[in-house]
Amino acid sequence: MNSPDRLLDRPIRTTDRLVSASTWEHGGRLWPSNEQLTLTCCRVIDETHDVKTFQFCTEDGLPVRFEPGQFMTVSARVGERAVERCYTISSPPTRPYLLSITVKRAPDGVMSNWLHDNMKPGTRLRAYGPSGRFTPIDAVAPKFLFLSAGSGVTPLMSMTRASIDLGLDRDIVFVHSARTPSDIIFRNELAHLATLSPRLRVLSVCEGLGDEPDWTGPTGRLSLKFLQECVPDFAEREIFTCGPGGYMSAVRQLLHEGGHNPDRYHQESFNFAEEVASQAVEPASDAAQATYTVKLSRSSRSFTMSASETVLAAAKKAGVPIPSSCSQGICGTCKTRVLEGTVDMNHQGGIRDREVQKGFRLLCCSRPTSDLLLDL
């Protein structure tokens, strides 16, 4: 997993140069993904009619290390409910004194609506440290293609900003899809960045014209024909994609049809709509229908659960509050020590080997294979 402490383990590799880790050590800090800090909002920027960027600094003003494309998990109390959500850091690691998240207001978005309605300069917010593997740090490639839709532009913006700040002059084609021209996030900044690097090409594809009937850019949806015409060498490029699930499924399909090597394809997404429901699976065997008892060492509470459920899903059904966010084994928020018993854990990089050796497990992607005693 690309956790922040890797910046001390080795140099930061970019396509065109090596940046010594000591560059980040002086005056900086490690911020583990399972530890919370208090951030203070410095500025709120209106990006579009329903998208805002929130800029934060740490309470002590020290810079933070992370990799472009990583996310952090923010926490807030919304009414009587404690809510945690993952947001990609849209600012680049080359500007470590400011951490930005860019958030689209969603009709049923508990956290996004709270941020839009309450966050202002001086407001404090708790957050877990940067995490995630969606980063080009280990992608040794001469050419890149960034594909995004909606607020999925944020990790790719961090990558692009970092490339420009470092003067790398990478060969990047950045294709962003939006509903209308007025919905293009970072529209003016992307145009400006393209003037700073002759090998950065920015294209925006809009489904409709909206209130800009004079829009001269491409309209419709991203298609194989569009890529073949506008990015004819797309099959040779390392591709990073972020956006809604339907968009990314369509992208994978058209890239497959276009002969792109899937080993050079990377994507990132978070889906919280089915946070708990998606964690239960249909029993596939008699073993999956077994039930186990889970005891909590600190509160002396207990509950029973099926072997087909994740521990997190079962705990929530039992009314046991456990911090969680991505529910995909990525962010590390639900990391908990298993004092007794065994689980089958299938994570996506949200926990390090040395943490596993110490008995920690990610409850969102762990299913019991015996009775459990948890350090909760």
Results as ranks from 00 to 15, higher is better:
residue 26 H to S: 14
residue 47 E to S: 02
residue 86 C to E: 08
residue 71 F to V: 11
residue 74 V to F: 04
residue 28 G to C: 07
residue 62 L to K: 14
residue 77 R to P: 01
residue 75 S to N: 10
residue 71 F to R: 10
residue 72 M to V: 14
residue 36 Q to V: 15
residue 35 E to W: 05
residue 75 S to K: 12
residue 69 G to H: 00
residue 40 T to K: 15
residue 49 H to F: 10
residue 29 R to F: 08
residue 58 T to F: 09
residue 64 V to G: 07
residue 49 H to Q: 02
residue 27 G to N: 02
residue 56 F to A: 02
residue 97 Y to S: 11
residue 57 C to N: 13
residue 78 V to I: 09
residue 100 S to W: 05
residue 76 A to C: 09
residue 93 P to Q: 05
residue 92 P to A: 14
residue 81 R to N: 03
residue 81 R to G: 01
residue 30 L to R: 04
residue 77 R to A: 06
residue 54 F to Y: 13
residue 86 C to S: 09
residue 78 V to C: 06
residue 60 D to Y: 09
residue 39 L to Q: 12
residue 67 E to K: 09
residue 64 V to F: 09
residue 40 T to L: 13
residue 39 L to R: 09
residue 56 F to E: 12
residue 47 E to F: 01
residue 86 C to F: 03
residue 57 C to T: 14
residue 45 I to W: 00
residue 30 L to W: 08
residue 77 R to C: 14
residue 32 P to E: 08
residue 76 A to N: 06
residue 79 G to N: 10
residue 53 T to Q: 15
residue 81 R to E: 02
residue 79 G to Y: 04
residue 73 T to Q: 05
residue 93 P to D: 11
residue 58 T to Q: 09
residue 34 N to C: 10
residue 42 C to P: 02
residue 54 F to C: 03
residue 54 F to M: 09
residue 61 G to P: 04
residue 96 P to F: 00
residue 47 E to N: 07
residue 98 L to S: 13
residue 99 L to I: 14
